[in-house]
Amino acid sequence: MTRICVAGGTGQVGREVVRRAIAAGHGVAVISRNPPPAGSPVRTDGAEYFAADVSTGEGLAAALVGADVVIDCLEGRSGKALKEFADGGARLLAAAQDAGVERAAVLSIVNCDRSSFGYYASKAAKEQIYERSGLETVALRATQFHSLLAAIFAAGSKLRIIPVIKGARFQPIAPADVAAALLEAALEPAGPRHGVRTIGGPEIEEMGEFARQWKAATGSRGRIVRFPLPGAMGKYLRAGLNLVPEGRHAGETFRGWLAMNADSL
């Protein structure tokens, strides 16, 4: 049995990694700044939860005792968390190395190293931390999640519009499909000291097509409105850097994900 430590194991990808690892018979420790209480929907039976903070290193040693593999699903979207995102990865890896961990995997974003957008740049910086570490490491770069598009459409729908970015196509993927690929990458036998893999959703469409699917699934009365997106993110999307046509994964489509999550849209 492999002992897996999942950092960020209560997020949408992390908790699916935990669920799949438990189902496969592995021992799982979950690192969370605030572990969920018993009965919480983001807590998985069979996993051990540890209060630990990668921004300070507090609690990491206890969570990593006996671990063979670390899977990093942490996020740092804004403020202090964004500024310290890569440094947190360095603390996690240092603690993992001290604990005798053999391998680590990190969740990342396709072509994050080709964007100056802060969140994506932080992902690229963390990848570099992993590449320079003394462990055997792998970064799994994924396209945007189905939930991101749904959140954009839902936010606009409150104002009776469904926003669509001009010139943008998307290749959305289900978090569960990413979790399966991340767990597989983390558990594979030793290969190159550091590797980078990519995974993309099963379909590439203009954003307006996904907006129409979301509108039909939710019954929204919002009007689809196209607008330009300036700045680094707009440049990234217009260049198609969020797409990996060669990395299509035959997983859940956006329409299928909408149907599966109809009660929460």
Results as ranks from 00 to 15, higher is better:
Gly66Glu: 13
Ser264Ile: 09
Gly27Trp: 10
Arg132His: 10
Gly191Tyr: 11
Glu203Phe: 02
Asp113Thr: 10
Val110Leu: 13
Gln128Ser: 00
Val65Ile: 10
Gln171Asp: 01
Gly89Thr: 03
Ala154Gln: 07
Ala139Ile: 10
Val69Asn: 06
Gly118Arg: 06
Arg226Asn: 00
Ser157Ile: 07
Gly100Asn: 10
Glu75Val: 14
Gly9His: 08
Ala38Lys: 14
Tyr119Cys: 01
Met260His: 11
Ala29Cys: 04
Ala52Thr: 02
Ala250Ser: 14
Lys235Gly: 12
Lys126Cys: 06
Gly100Lys: 12
Glu102Trp: 13
Thr218Asn: 08
Asn261Glu: 03
Glu136Ala: 00
Leu258Thr: 01
Phe210Leu: 09
Ile224His: 11
Thr2Ile: 05
Cys73Gln: 12
Gln12Pro: 13
Lys166Ser: 11
Ala67Leu: 10
Val244Asn: 13
Leu187His: 12
Gly46Lys: 15
Ile224Gly: 06
Arg114Asn: 00
Asp263Ile: 02
Phe210Lys: 03
Glu246Met: 09
Ala24Gln: 13
Arg20Cys: 01
Glu48His: 15
Leu148Ile: 11
Ile129Ala: 01
Asp45Trp: 15
Ala239Glu: 15
Phe117Thr: 00
Gly59Cys: 04
Lys235Leu: 12
Gly195Asn: 12
Ala217Cys: 05
Gly240Phe: 10
Ala23Tyr: 14
Arg141Gly: 01
Val65Leu: 09
Arg212Trp: 08
Met207Thr: 03
Ala23Trp: 13
Ala121Thr: 04
Ser122His: 04
Ala259Phe: 02
Ser147Tyr: 07
Lys80Tyr: 03
Asp53Arg: 03
Ala151His: 11
Thr253Ala: 04
Ala81Ser: 03
Leu92Gly: 02
Glu75His: 14
Ala95Trp: 03
Ile31Thr: 02
Leu74Tyr: 08
Ala186Asp: 08
Val69Cys: 08
Ser55Cys: 01
Gly8Asp: 03
Gly14Pro: 14
Pro192Thr: 07
Ala181Ile: 00
Ala186Leu: 08
Leu135Asp: 05
Gly79Pro: 10
Val28Thr: 13
Tyr236Cys: 02
Glu127Leu: 07
Glu16Phe: 08
Ala259Met: 04
Pro172Ala: 02
Pro228Phe: 12
Ser108His: 06
Gly167Tyr: 05
Ala67His: 11
Gln12Gly: 07
Leu92Arg: 03
Phe170Ala: 05
Cys73Gly: 09
Leu64Pro: 11
Leu258Asn: 02
Asp45Tyr: 14
Leu258His: 01
Ser40Asp: 15
Ala21His: 10
Phe50Ala: 00
Phe117Ser: 02
Ala190Thr: 12
Ser264Gln: 12
Ala211Leu: 07
Gly118Ser: 00
Leu148Glu: 10
Gly89Trp: 02
Ala211Tyr: 04
Lys80Met: 00
Pro41Gly: 01
Ala151Ile: 00
Ala239Leu: 14
Ala21Ser: 09
Ser157Val: 08
Ala262Ile: 05
Gly256Glu: 09
Leu64Glu: 04
Glu209Cys: 09
